[in-house]
Simulated assay, not measured.
Amino acid sequence: MSIRLPALPADPEAPFPPGQTALRHPDGLLAIGGDLTPQRLLNAYRHGIFPWYSEDQPILWWCPDPRTVFRSDGVRLSSRFRRWLRHSDWQVRADTAFDGVIDACARMPRAGQRGTWITDEMIEAYRELHELGHAHSIEVFAGDRLVGGLYGVAIGRMFFGESMYSAESGGSKVALGALAQRMREWNWPLLDAQVENDHLLSMGAERWPRARFLATVAELTADSLAAPAGAWTERFGTLGAAELAPAGHD
Score class of each variant (00 low, 15 high):
F16S: 03
L29M: 02
L191M: 15
R210G: 11
D192C: 09
S169P: 09
S79Y: 07
S88C: 10
G149N: 08
S166D: 04
F81G: 07
I3Q: 04
A142S: 13
Q181E: 12
V140W: 01
Y151E: 04
A44V: 04
D65F: 06
P9T: 03
V92C: 02
S137K: 02
P18S: 08
F236I: 07
L200F: 03
T216P: 00
G177M: 08
A154G: 14
R235H: 09
A22I: 01
P26F: 06
S166P: 01
R114D: 15
I155Y: 06
H87Y: 11
F70C: 06
L176C: 13
V75L: 14
Y126F: 14
I138Y: 06
S224C: 13
G149K: 02
F81E: 11
A211L: 11
G170T: 10
A175T: 02
G148P: 01
E234P: 00
T233Q: 14
T221S: 12
H134L: 11
G100H: 03
V69T: 09
K173T: 09
I3L: 12
P246M: 08
F141W: 13
S54D: 15
Q181V: 08
P64W: 01
Q39T: 14
L200C: 09
W186K: 07
Q91H: 03
R83L: 06
G48K: 07
W62L: 09
G237M: 04
A215C: 07
A247T: 12
E55L: 13
L200D: 03
A178V: 03
P64Y: 06
A242G: 10
A167N: 12
L8Y: 03
R235Y: 01
E196T: 13
L200I: 05
A229L: 09
L60N: 05
E139N: 01
L29W: 01
G143C: 03
P66H: 05
W117K: 04
L191N: 07
T68C: 15
G161A: 11
T96W: 02
R210I: 03
E185I: 01
Q113G: 14
V92D: 00
E55P: 00
R157A: 15
D192Q: 01
T116R: 14
D95F: 00
E168H: 12
L129Y: 09
D250H: 08
L77T: 02
